[in-house]
Design a protein around this nucleic acid. Structure first.
Lengths: 224, 224
DNA sequence: TGGCATGGTTACAATTCCGTGACAAGCAAT
DNA sequence: ATTGCTTGTCACGGAATTGTAACCATGCCA
């Protein structure tokens, strides 16, 4: 998943934020001062930088400015952490290309939501909104599926299952893989649950049912 | 290019907005209080006014009202800046003649997009940023909603909820997304609060209630 | 042909999810 | 103080969804 760099001199805040970011599934890098943060950003190219304004060595604005002027780092979104009363600073920082800011003391929950929002914004271009294969069209935005132009009504699980298969057209997906992506890693259940859902999916696909092929002894596959 | 007047008492926010506007190539005028803003608007007739609600001297609502009633200034589009809280409700509740509003703290990127959208509209002569879909018309200027021509009376929350759905026609909005945009990032509450408001909205939509579709296990969607 | 493994089919109970009504707190106007 | 409106929360109940198990069907091997 996405990598996030947090540049903050106070170790306990770093810890706190890291804990919550990792719980959300992000990979986390830490830096305790400006130069270190800048260097880690340049070498690791994280998807987002959480940047404190008050930093030893080089302050947040300077880091921000250098990130914005660097060829490879210019696209990295920055979320600034500012103390209340540093409003002037916040402006300067924002003028330098930061995407958002949170005022300290902040709510961790809110910080997480903003990070997610930033990541959603930036990955929007790369994400294919609709998948289609041989008359089956899956629209991820509208969350609906049509077969030869006719809408069919899938449940949430069936939708995710079909989505996974269509993201890997022609490739075999083992039951294990499907359980991990469709049901999530925390699911501890019977592998043959997949079979039941494949059956329900096939039923709803009507005469396109055989697009979902069985690979005996391995798993399932969307016909290429 | 276009001239834009920003009326805002906090110097740092003025700075921030000016920086970005100028980077986009606009000419920028500044005013720090209501009377000054009104006067600069009347003498310079800018193409757009960005107007803070909380102002010394004369509040943004009053400025807005006077701009709308002035012969020469009535055509100038206004974008309101408001703090989250009761003010948003007042903006939504009142018919002020504002063209759009942005809630503080705002994303600079979003503000720029809205300014551009307003200027694009006025260039083309088309004014009302009213959203309409299958007989439901949401008028962003008057902050009112009609169903098949008949006005209905929505509360502020219901209005913002419908606004979010109509800005993404056909797209599923998860409860989390709706909470973030309609209630704000700092809202820490029960996700099913959304359900209740959807229900109230549907009630008021009358026979157009099924325009707001439930996508079971995912969220809600405006019928495309 | 039989034995085994694998997947298809069906049924069902448990669970999840959503619509609904009720309610109390907060707030504005009176 | 009272009234009315808005808003967030909760509990209940019906309906859809889901995981599991049992039972069949089929393919593969000797």
């Amino acid at each position: 998943m996405a990598t996030i760099l947090i540049v903050e001199d106070e170790a306990d805040i770093r810890e706190l934020v890291r804990f919550h970011l990792e719980r959300e599934g992000y990979a986390v890098l830490e830096a305790a001062d400006g130069p270190d943060g800048l260097e880690k950003a340049q070498t690791h190219l994280p998807q987002c930088v959480i940047l404190d304004v008050m930093l030893p060595g080089m302050d947040g604005f300077e880091v921000c400015r250098r990130l914005a002027s660097g060829e490879t780092t210019a696209q990295i979104p920055v979320l600034l952490l500012t103390a209340r009363g540093e409003e002037v600073d916040r402006v300067v920082g924002l003028s330098l290309g930061a995407d958002d800011y949170v005022v300290k003391p902040f709510s961790v929950r809110e910080l997480m939501l903003r990070v997610k929002a930033i990541l959603r914004r930036t990955e929007q271009g790369s994400r294919a909104p609709s998948l289609s294969r041989n008359g089956i069209v899956l629209d991820g935005v509208a969350h609906c599926v049509s077969v030869d132009g006719a809408m069919i009504n899938l449940t949430a699980t069936e939708f995710r299952l079909l989505e996974d298969l269509m993201r890997h057209p022609g490739a075999v997906r083992t039951r294990e893989q499907l359980l991990n992506t469709v049901w999530g890693y925390s699911f501890e259940g019977y592998a043959r649950t997949v079979d039941t859902h494949v059956r329900r999916l096939r039923q709803k696909l009507g005469d396109k049912a055989d697009m979902v092929e069985t690979v005996r002894g391995v798993g399932y596959r969307l016909h290429a």
